[in-house]
């Protein structure tokens, strides 16, 4: 807000191209059955690419990379809290069947 950062057209075009390449990567990897290697691999690959794309959009198109530290902290905490929510919920789901039988 204090000073507007002017992002060069070159950066915008590069990010756009990166997003296009990643989109193509999503489409291509979806055509292969990665589940033969590991069950959830298809989903993991698709989500990883999606996260990279979202990060690029937030950092460059939404100017967070050039924003004040405070803005960055706000954005980062939003993501961190999402991670907390998912991770702590998974803490339940992934360990549900792990309690040993009582030895009577």
């Amino acid at each position: 807000m204090s000073q507007e950062h002017i992002v060069s057209v070159r950066v915008y075009v590069l990010i756009f191209l990166a997003l296009m390449v990643l989109t193509a990567a999503t489409v291509i990897t979806a055509k292969y059955d990665l589940t033969v290697i590991w069950g959830p691999l298809n989903a993991i690959v698709a989500l990883t690419i999606a996260v990279i794309k979202a990060t690029l959009v937030v950092l460059y198109f939404m100017h967070v990379r050039y924003s004040s530290k405070l803005t960055q902290v706000v954005v980062f905490s939003g993501v961190l809290w999402l991670i907390i929510m998912v991770a702590f919920t998974m803490m339940d789901y992934l360990t549900r069947h792990g309690w040993p039988e009582p030895n009577l």
């Binding site: 809290w81 907390i84 702590f88 803490m91 339940d92 360990t95 549900r96 792990g98 309690w99």
Partner: peptide, 18 residues
């Protein structure tokens, strides 16, 4: 305060580890 919500789920078939 965001890290303790599971204490509402002790009897809701939540994993004992969690």
């Amino acid at each position: 305060g965001f890290l303790v919500w599971g204490h509402h789920l002790f009897t809701s078939s939540q994993s004992v580890y969690a």
